[in-house]
Design a protein around this nucleic acid. Structure first.
Lengths: 233, 233
DNA sequence: ACCTGAACACCGTTCAAGT
DNA sequence: ACCTGAACACCGTTCAAGT
C-alpha cells in the first residue's frame, strides 16, 4: 500500500490504448519529431520491445493516433442538423482538431486504415440528403474531403515552421507578411497586395469561407438537376 | 582524351543544380524513402560532405527539388488565357506534376521557400481579373490553393501505398473497392454505394470537377458584388 | 504472455584532413 | 574553395533472454 509498492506494481498495465494516448501527448507537446519509440518507452516507463508487443509498426502507431482523434471528432457531431450544416460542422470540428493537433494534418493523408474513409462517409451522406445527383456525389465528396485535408496540411506546416523558429502565431505571421511585402512588385503583385491582411486574418474563418465556396458550387449541381425533376423515392 | 581520362576528370563539376536534379531522379524512381545523402553521394560519385558544401540541409534539398518542379509547371502556363481557364490550366498542370512526381504532393505543403507562394500568385491574379471583390480575394485564393494541395497529398499517399504493396494503379483501386464494399452497411452506407465506381473513375477528372465546384462558387461572389455596381478603374 | 535491453542496420550531420 | 570519409548521435526494428 505504500508508495514504493505502488511504484513497483504499475498502476495500469501497458496496453495499445495507453501507448497511443502517450503518443498523442508526445506529438501535441513537441511535434512530429518527438515521437520516438525510445521517448515513448521512457514516458511509459517500459522497454523498447514491449511497445512492439502492442504495435506492429511506427506507421501503425501514427495511424492509431490519427484515428483516435478522428473518431472523437466524428462522435461529437450533431446528426440531426441540416445537411449543409452537417458538412460545415464536420469541417469546423476537423479544422479545430487539426489546429489543436498540428501533426494530424500532415499525417492524416498518408495514414493507412479507415480514418479518411470515416471522414468521407458523413460528407457523402450529407450530399445524398442534399439531392446531389448520383454521378456527382463521389467527385463532390472527394472535393470537400481534399479541401479539408489540404487546409490541415498547411496548418500543420505553419505550426511546424513556427515551432522551429520558436515563434508564436503572431510573430510568425508578421514575419511572413514582411517577407511577402519584400517580393518583386511585378511578379508577385497579388501576394504583395494581400500581405497586409496576413497578420490580422483568421485561418478558421478563411477555412469556412472556402468550404462555403464549395458548398455554393454544390448547390448549383442540385439546382441544375432539379430542372429535370425526378420522382421522389 | 581517352575514356579513362574522361572518367577521372568528372564530365561536369558538382553543383547545386546537378545535386537537385539527381535528387529528383531518385525521388521519382524509388519514392521519398530513397532520398538519402548516402544514395545521392553514390549516384553522383562523390563524398557525403561534398553535398553539404552545396546544400545546407536535407530540408533545403527537398525544398529545392519541389521548387524546381513548381517553377517548371508555372513557366509552361499560357498567360493569355481567360482567368478561369488560367486557374484550370494551372490546376491541371500542377495535378499532372504531382501525378508524375508523387513525392511533390506530400512535400510541397511543408517546404520552406517560395514554392507555395509561387502557386498562390497566379491564382490570386486570376481572381483579381475575375473581379472577385477585394475582401474575398485572399480566402478564395487560399481555398483554391488548399484544394490543389489536398488532392496532391492524397495522390502522393495513394502512390505510396501502391508502391509499398507493389501494385499498379488498377489492382490498388480494386483492392480498395473490395475493402470498402466489405464495410458495415449502415455506418458506411455512402462509401459502400460509391465503391463500385472506384476502379473506373479518373482522379484527374475528379480533380477538375472539384476545381470547377470552387470556381462556380467563386462566380457567385462576383455576381453578388455586381448587384452593387462599382465604377471602373 | 508479456516484457527487457543489447544489437543491427540504417539515418542526417559534422569535421579534421586532404587537394 | 572544394572535396573526402570516418565519426557522432541519433533512428526503427529485431531477438535472445528473462519473468
Amino acid at each position: 500500500m505504500d508508495s514504493s509498492m505502488v511504484r513497483k506494481r504499475r498502476a495500469d498495465a501497458l496496453s495499445r490504448t495507453r501507448i497511443v494516448e502517450a503518443a498523442i501527448v508526445l506529438l501535441d507537446s513537441a511535434g512530429e519529431g518527438a515521437l520516438t519509440f525510445r521517448a515513448l518507452a521512457a514516458k511509459l516507463d517500459t522497454g523498447l520491445g514491449a511497445l512492439y508487443h502492442h504495435l506492429t509498426d511506427k506507421a501503425d502507431l501514427v495511424a492509431a493516433a490519427c484515428d483516435t482523434i478522428v473518431v472523437k471528432v466524428l462522435t461529437n457531431l450533431d446528426a440531426s442538423a441540416e445537411p449543409v450544416d452537417r458538412v460545415r460542422q464536420l469541417g469546423l470540428a476537423l479544422y479545430d482538431a487539426m489546429d489543436q493537433h498540428p501533426w494530424l494534418g500532415s499525417t492524416l493523408p498518408r495514414v493507412r486504415g479507415l480514418s479518411v474513409v470515416r471522414i468521407l462517409e458523413p460528407i457523402g451522406q450529407s450530399l445524398v440528403q442534399l439531392d446531389v445527383p448520383q454521378p456527382e456525389q463521389w467527385s463532390t465528396a472527394s472535393a470537400l474531403l481534399h479541401y479539408m485535408l489540404g487546409v490541415g496540411g498547411q496548418t500543420a506546416a505553419n505550426a511546424q515552421v513556427a515551432r522551429l523558429g520558436d515563434m508564436n502565431r503572431e510573430s510568425y505571421l508578421e514575419a511572413a507578411a514582411k517577407e511577402w511585402a519584400a517580393l518583386d512588385p511585378v511578379a508577385f503583385a497579388f501576394v504583395r497586395s494581400v500581405a497586409g491582411q496576413l497578420p490580422r486574418h483568421s485561418d478558421r474563418q478563411d477555412f469556412l469561407a472556402g468550404l462555403d465556396l464549395i458548398l455554393a458550387g454544390t448547390r448549383m449541381l442540385t439546382v441544375a438537376s432539379k430542372t429535370r425533376p425526378r420522382r421522389k423515392a
